[in-house]
Amino acid sequence: MSLVVVDIADMRISDNPGDTLVTYSLGSCLGVSIYDPVIRVGGMIHCMLPLSKVDKEKSRLRPYMFVDTGMQEMLGQLYEAGMRKARAVVNVAGGSQVLDSQGVFKIGERNFTVLRKILWKNGLLMNVQEVGGNKSRTISLDIATGRFSIKSGGKLVHYELP
């Protein structure tokens, strides 16, 4: 059993049944895990911001910082690893906000809007979707079983494969 930590603005893919991918403290950031139960390959990404156009230089340096460039890159790598679209289990968490009546701080909402568009374009559906509110969340994906977990406010919830 080894814990593979996915840093902020990073992405990891594993086919090692001993691995658990984990990413901590998702606020307005989005954590997305995608898993193929047949070949037992999974990936996890921790994106901060919706669109890479806000900082072109960073998007080259850190494509996983942004939902658009990050998801495109992760999906490409998963397909290369043998994942099939029809088998992909997509789980999403994060996208919270601080209380802001003006809306400039709704980064979480904007992240999720962009994500939904990308999934729709790719013909992928969401399985678990724990998004919004004002909680901070930590998520993990067990590569051997595809079990997805969300920890938030001291509570831990497990989601088995559908």
């Binding site: 606020g27 601080v98 209380l99 701080f105 004002n134 909680k135 406010g153």
Partner: peptide, 9 residues
């Protein structure tokens, strides 16, 4: 921390 994003802008 524990209480997440419960802060007001």
């Amino acid at each position: 921390g524990i209480y997440g994003l419960a802060h007001e802008v």
